Deep mutational scan, measured.
Amino acid sequence: TETREFDNEEEARKEAERLRRKGQDVQIRKKGNRWELRRT
């Protein structure tokens, strides 16, 4: 599992969408005042 953190939700969602188009399974969750993007 690979995780990346983003400062805002929009960036996290854009990156998640990009990875999903490549066929990756991605989850986003709020972590304090940041957003965590998890690739499984």
Results as ranks from 00 to 15, higher is better:
Glu10Lys: 08
Thr1Met: 12
Glu2Gln: 11
Asn8Tyr: 05
Arg34Val: 09
Arg29Leu: 14
Arg4Lys: 11
Leu19Gly: 01
Ala12Ile: 02
Ala16Gln: 07
Arg13Ser: 07
Phe6Val: 02
Asp7Asn: 06
Arg13Ile: 13
Arg21Ser: 11
Ala16Glu: 04
Arg34Glu: 03
Glu11Arg: 03
Gly32Tyr: 00
Leu37Thr: 06
Lys22Met: 15
Trp35Met: 01
Asn33Thr: 05
Glu5Ile: 14
Thr40Met: 13
Glu10Tyr: 11
Glu5Arg: 07
Ile28Trp: 03
Arg38Thr: 15
Glu36Phe: 09
Thr40Phe: 10
Glu2Met: 13
Phe6Pro: 01
Leu37Gln: 03
Arg29Trp: 09
Arg39Gln: 14
Arg34Leu: 08
Thr40Lys: 09
Leu37Tyr: 00
Glu5Pro: 03
Asn8Met: 04
Leu37Lys: 03
Leu19Gln: 04
Asp7Thr: 07
Val26Gly: 02
Arg29Gly: 05
Trp35Val: 00
Glu2Arg: 11
Glu17Arg: 11
Glu11His: 05
Arg13Thr: 10
Glu15Asp: 02
Trp35Arg: 00
Ala16Phe: 12
Phe6His: 02
Trp35Asn: 01
Asn33Ser: 06
Asp7Pro: 06
Glu17Leu: 10
Thr40Gln: 10
Arg18Lys: 10
Thr3Tyr: 13
Arg4Phe: 14
Thr1Ala: 12
Leu37Phe: 00
Thr1Val: 13
Gly32Phe: 01
Gly32Ala: 02
Trp35Tyr: 04
Arg29Pro: 02
Arg38Asp: 09
Thr3Glu: 07
Glu2Ala: 12
Arg34Ser: 07
Phe6Tyr: 10
Arg38Tyr: 15
Lys31Trp: 03
Arg29Ile: 15
Phe6Asp: 01
Gly23Trp: 03
Glu5Lys: 06
Lys30Val: 05
Lys31Met: 09
Arg4Ile: 14
Lys14Glu: 13
Glu11Lys: 04
Arg20Ile: 07
Glu17Gln: 10
Gln27Arg: 08
Lys14Trp: 11
Thr1Ile: 13
Leu37Ile: 11
Arg38Lys: 11
Glu2Leu: 13
Thr3Leu: 12
Ala12Ser: 01
Lys31Arg: 11
Arg4Leu: 15
Phe6Ile: 01
Ala12Tyr: 01
Arg39Glu: 14
Ile28Gln: 01
Arg13Ala: 08
Thr40Asn: 10
Asp25Gln: 14
Thr1Glu: 12
Glu11Gln: 07
Trp35Gly: 02
Lys22Pro: 03
Glu11Tyr: 03
Arg18Tyr: 09
Asn8Lys: 05
Gly32Pro: 00
Gln24Phe: 15
Ile28Met: 06
Arg34His: 12
Glu9Pro: 06
Arg29Tyr: 13
Lys31His: 09
Thr1Tyr: 15
Glu9Ser: 03
Gly32Cys: 04
Ala16Ile: 03
Phe6Leu: 01
Glu9Asn: 02
Leu19Ala: 04
Ile28Pro: 02
Arg38Ile: 15
Glu11Phe: 03
Ile28Glu: 00
Glu10Asn: 08
Trp35Ile: 01
Arg38Glu: 12
Thr1Gln: 11
Arg18Cys: 14
Lys22Val: 10
Arg38Phe: 15
Asp7Phe: 06
Leu37His: 01
Lys30Cys: 08
Glu17Val: 08
Glu5Leu: 15
Glu2Asn: 10
Thr3Arg: 10
Gly23Ile: 01
Glu15Arg: 02
Arg29Ala: 11
Glu9Trp: 15
Glu5Asn: 07
Gly23Glu: 02
Arg18Glu: 08
Ala12Arg: 01
Glu15Ser: 03
Trp35Phe: 04
Glu36Arg: 02
Arg13Val: 12
Glu36Pro: 03
Glu36Ile: 12
Arg18Met: 10
Thr3Lys: 09
Asn33His: 05
Lys22Arg: 12
Arg21Tyr: 06
Asp25Lys: 12
Lys30Thr: 04
Thr3Met: 11
Lys31Ile: 14
Leu37Val: 15
Glu10Met: 10
Lys14Arg: 12
Ala12Val: 05
Arg20Phe: 05
Arg38His: 14
Arg13Tyr: 12
Glu36Val: 12
Asp7Cys: 13
Arg4Ala: 09
Gln27Tyr: 13
Thr40Pro: 07
Arg21Ile: 07
Val26His: 03
Arg39Ile: 15
Glu11Ser: 07
Glu36Leu: 07
Lys14Asp: 09
Gly23Gln: 02
Thr40Trp: 10
Glu17Tyr: 08
Arg13Glu: 10
Asp7Val: 06
Gly32Asn: 06
Thr40Ser: 10
Thr1Trp: 15
Asp25His: 14
Arg21Phe: 06
Arg13Leu: 14
Arg18Gly: 05
Arg34Ala: 06
Glu2Ile: 13
Arg29Asn: 09
Trp35Asp: 01
Arg18Ile: 11
Glu5Phe: 15
Arg4Met: 14
Arg39Trp: 15
Phe6Glu: 00
Lys22Trp: 10
Glu36Trp: 06
Thr40His: 09
Asn8Thr: 15
Leu19Pro: 00
Gln24Met: 14
Ala12Phe: 00
Ala16Trp: 11
Arg20Val: 05
Lys31Phe: 05
Glu36Gly: 02
Arg13Trp: 11
Arg38Val: 15
Thr40Val: 14
Ile28His: 01
Asn33Met: 05
Asn33Cys: 10
Asp7Tyr: 07
Arg20Asn: 04
Leu37Trp: 02
Arg29Ser: 11
Arg34Tyr: 08
Glu10Val: 08
Thr40Gly: 09
Glu2Asp: 11
Glu36Met: 05
Glu10Ile: 09
Lys14His: 10
Glu15Lys: 02
Ala16Leu: 09
Arg13Phe: 12
Ala16Gly: 06
Glu17Trp: 08
Lys14Ser: 10
Arg21Glu: 09
Phe6Gln: 00
Asp25Tyr: 14
Leu19Thr: 01
Arg39Tyr: 15
